[in-house]
């Protein structure tokens, strides 16, 4: 299944590996940060809503 990359196999695999890793990192960091902010906001909003009930 793996194509024959010839004498440039290292360069091609390095380019794909590094780039995909960078894309995964930016997606992962975005999801992680979103989750963190959402949880903190929920806590603060619950604290605000609490005494009114």
């Amino acid at each position: 299944m793996m194509p024959d990359l010839g004498r440039y196999a290292t360069e091609v695999l390095m380019a794909y590996g590094g780039s995909i890793a960078l894309l995964v990192i930016i997606v992962g960091v975005s999801i992680w940060k979103a989750g963190q902010v959402r949880r903190r906001l929920e806590v603060v909003e619950a604290r605000r809503e609490g005494p009114r009930r």
Binding site: K33, V37, R40, L41, V44
Partner: peptide, 22 residues
């Protein structure tokens, strides 16, 4: 990613405003 991250920034801004109000 821009839509997703902008949503996070809007929430973060609201969070900061609520904490300042508290």
């Amino acid at each position: 990613l821009v839509l997703y991250r902008t949503r996070t920034e809007i929430r973060a801004r609201r969070l900061k405003a609520l904490i300042a109000q508290e």
